[in-house]
Structures are given as structure tokens and as C-alpha cells.
């Protein structure tokens, strides 16, 4: 029987050189997500139902919009196609984040029941482990229906495409997902302080995506200012999408603002990263 020191030497050879935290995190994320996928497959009938449920559930918002348009031709000066365009982009971006970070709102529950501690003794970044928690493929349902609605919008709308506008489309979805990711992470960080406050996070995430499904012209100017300058959700779709549609934004902003989403996303993620670290530090110093 080899003695422990000898055994440990083997691990040193095996450990990644340098071992970047990002790479470690992604690897842990992939491993844990894989376990969750297999867990859900243990209940196949239920899984099939939840996939359908997720698709139908997230499509409900669009059904509401369709019902509205069965009674009116325009909402806030926008046609059904234009609203569908906003809706599809908001859903696709949010759906992407929801798929990747969908259970971050359970952090408070993990703090309360003490299971966060079991993550802290693992050789992987906690954020990656929490993010992968309850990873669920059923969340592809939201992305799918968002993209379907977006497809519908692209068919019915007569957009004067330029290369810049074409490029802006995928950039918009990815940056939007980044902005939502920042909200998810910041919301989870807040739960280190207030463990029962997962609903607050939901109101910014789910509430945010619902808000962005409608034209900005529908809302009060102050509300639009708030989601432009304070919590910059407007950069998820409103500002870039209106550039693509050649529609005016209710606030008087220069045109280049439409190209800011990637920068806004990076800045938001950096801020939420700071919040996360602060939250985790406070947890580790207070233990509650």
C-alpha cells in the first residue's frame, strides 16, 4: 500500500498547470450540469412534460400579445411584427441566461439549509457550482419559442438590412444574455444577505424580460429612463432593436448608443462579479 505522500505526488503531476479559475469553473459547470441532466432523465415522463411546459409557459406571454392584437392593430404605435421582434429578442437573450444560470435564485435556500457549505469544500469555484445547480434542459423551451417568434417577426417585417444591422443581431442576443446574467448573479449575491429574497431577483429577471417584450413607447418616460441609465436593461433589446427597425427611442439619445450592448454587458458582469465576491466574503465571515 503506497503511503499518502507518494500518492499525493501523483496528483501533482495530474493537476492542471496554473489552472485558470475560468477554465476550472467551466469544467466544474459542465460536470455538474451533466449530472443534473442525468438526474432529470430519471423521471422521463415528467421531463417530457416539463419541456412542453416550459415551451408553452414561456409562449403564454406571446399568446397574451396575440390576444391583444386580436382586438387592436397597434400597441404604443407598434405593429404586431415589431412587437414580436422585441419579444423574440428579449426571450432569446433571457432564455440563454435562464438556461445557463436558471437556478441561481436558489442560493438563498442553499444558504438556509446549509448545503452551500458542501459546495465550498469542493475544488471548484462556488459561482460555477451554484450556476450549474439544477441545470435543466427543459429551459431550451424558452429559447426555442423566443427564436420562433423572432423568426416570425423577421418574415413579416420589411427591414432595410445593412451589414451592420445583420451583425448587430447575434451581438444583441449574446450581450443581452450577458446583461441578464449580471442581474442573475447580482440577485444571487443579494441573497447572501437576505436569504428569502429570491423573489426580488425574479422581479428583475422575469419582470425585466416581460418589460422588454413591449415597446418602450408604452411606458412612462421615467420608467424608460430608469431601465436605460440605472438598470440598463434597455440595452438588451430596445436600443439596438429600434436601430434595426429604424424607429425612434422615446429618449433623445445619439445613434451610436445602439452599439453599446457589448460594453454594457461587460461592465454589468464586472459589477455583479464584485457583488458576488462581496456576498461570498460576507457569508464566509458570518456563516449565515
Amino acid at each position: 500500500m503506497a503511503d499518502l505522500d507518494e500518492r499525493r505526488d501523483e496528483y501533482r503531476d495530474f493537476a492542471p498547470a496554473g489552472g485558470s479559475r475560468l477554465v476550472d469553473g467551466l469544467r466544474a459547470y459542465r460536470l455538474i450540469a451533466g449530472m443534473w441532466i442525468r438526474s432529470t432523465m430519471a423521471y422521463r415522463a415528467s421531463f417530457a412534460m416539463t419541456v412542453f411546459g416550459n415551451f408553452a409557459g414561456t409562449a403564454l406571454d406571446f399568446v397574451a400579445i396575440l390576444l391583444m392584437f386580436s382586438r387592436v392593430d397597434e400597441l404604443g404605435g407598434y405593429s404586431l411584427g415589431e412587437v414580436a421582434f422585441l419579444y423574440g429578442l428579449s426571450c432569446a437573450a433571457f432564455g440563454l441566461t435562464d438556461l445557463v444560470l436558471g437556478s441561481m435564485d436558489r442560493l438563498g435556500a442553499r444558504v438556509r439549509d446549509g448545503t452551500l457549505d458542501t459546495l465550498l469544500v469542493r475544488p471548484a469555484p462556488v459561482l460555477a457550482q451554484v450556476a450549474a445547480d439544477r441545470f435543466a434542459l427543459r429551459r431550451l423551451g424558452r429559447i426555442t419559442q423566443g427564436l420562433l417568434v423572432l423568426g416570425y417577426a423577421l418574415v413579416v417585417l420589411d427591414i432595410s438590412w445593412t451589414p451592420l444591422k445583420v451583425l448587430l443581431m447575434p451581438v444583441m442576443v449574446v450581450s443581452g444574455a450577458g446583461i441578464f446574467a449580471a442581474v442573475f448573479v447580482a440577485g444571487a449575491a443579494f441573497q447572501f444577505v437576505a436569504q428569502d429574497a429570491s423573489q426580488v431577483q425574479n422581479s428583475f429577471t422575469y419582470g425585466g424580460t416581460t418589460l422588454l417584450q413591449y415597446p418602450p413607447t408604452v411606458f412612462a418616460k421615467d420608467l424608460v429612463r430608469g431601465v436605460t441609465f440605472v438598470l440598463p436593461l434597455a440595452f438588451v433589446n430596445w436600443l439596438p432593436a429600434l436601430y434595426v427597425l429604424d424607429l425612434p427611442y422615446p429618449l433623445d439619445l445619439p445613434e451610436w448608443v445602439a452599439f453599446l450592448p457589448p460594453l454594457v454587458a461587460v461592465a454589468c458582469c464586472a459589477l455583479s462579479g464584485v457583488a458576488w465576491r462581496a456576498g461570498l466574503r460576507s457569508y464566509r465571515s458570518t456563516g449565515s
Binding site: E10, Y11, F14, I32, M35
Partner: peptide, 9 residues
């Protein structure tokens, strides 16, 4: 999972 997470030879 432990095998892979801890990179056990």
C-alpha cells in the same frame, strides 16, 4: 463525478 472533479488519476 468525484473522479473527474478532483482529477483523480
Amino acid at each position: 463525478l468525484m473522479h473527474r472533479m478532483y482529477r483523480i488519476p
